[in-house]
């Protein structure tokens, strides 16, 4: 075999590709489901924390800031390892999917809280005062006047952060989740050929390349203009 043939046989082996294609597709959907779970719960929790922080209760806010800092400082894989390998010592075993979901949702929560909160504080004080002077309550002002403006400002950083954290779903393969990378890894060790990895990489590109380009578009479309 020439080098070129060996290269093609290794990375673009049609027989292996056909054999493991269904597995990769299954992994593809699993990655999407995991990503969706992370995005929905992570963003909801982040927004919730930011709203609670707006009440300005000192002790509560210090707690929120600590939790946010904690999940910004810890590598996601360390959190996943802690949940998956550590928690069983407390008699609590969760499967890899749940561990990855919780860990990455917590990370997204932390980052998005920070972004939502920055957005809320960036809305001028006069907006609060104008709304309150017409008799709107605190929560009404937050809901109808402040958050709509804050959310618009947060769209670009939030989009990019969400994409970056969602890519972390590949970490789930470390804790035996058959997502794209998990399925690809399994394929490689069964077939003793790296073609499944090529397919996995291609699957990630199919999934994330449009998202990355979308993020780029969002950045210019929602630039910080008002």
């Amino acid at each position: 075999m020439t080098n070129w043939e060996r290269f093609v046989d290794s990375f673009f082996n049609a027989r292996v590709a056909a054999e493991y294609f269904p597995k990769i597709v299954e992994g593809f959907w699993l990655t999407i489901v995991l990503a969706a779970c992370i995005i929905v719960t992570g963003l909801a929790a982040g927004l919730g924390l930011a709203v609670i922080r707006a009440f300005g209760l000192r002790v509560v806010n210090l707690l929120i800031i600590f939790v946010v800092d904690l999940f910004r400082a810890l590598p996601p894989l360390v959190i996943i390892a802690l949940l998956y390998f550590g928690l069983p010592a407390a008699g609590l075993s969760m499967d890899g999917f749940v561990c990855a979901w919780i860990a990455l949702a917590a990370v997204l929560m932390a980052f998005s809280e920070e972004i939502f909160w920055a957005g809320i504080t960036a809305v001028p004080k006069g907006q609060w005062e104008a709304a309150r002077s017409t008799g709107l309550g605190f929560l009404q002002t937050l809901g109808y006047v402040v958050l709509p403006q804050a959310l618009r400002m947060t769209i670009p950083p939030l989009t990019n952060r969400t994409i970056a954290i969602t890519k972390g779903t590949a970490l789930a393969s470390v804790v035996a989740v058959p997502d794209i990378l998990g399925a690809a890894n399994a394929g490689v060790s069964f077939s003793f050929n790296p073609t499944p990895l090529t397919m996995g990489a291609a699957a990630y590109l199919v999934l994330f390349l449009p998202v990355v380009i979308f993020g780029r578009w969002v950045e210019t479309r929602f630039a910080w203009k008002r």
Partner: peptide
């Protein structure tokens, strides 16, 4: 009713 220096329209 209150009217502000910087309008503060939404």
């Amino acid at each position: 009713g209150m009217v502000f220096q910087s309008f503060n329209l939404y």
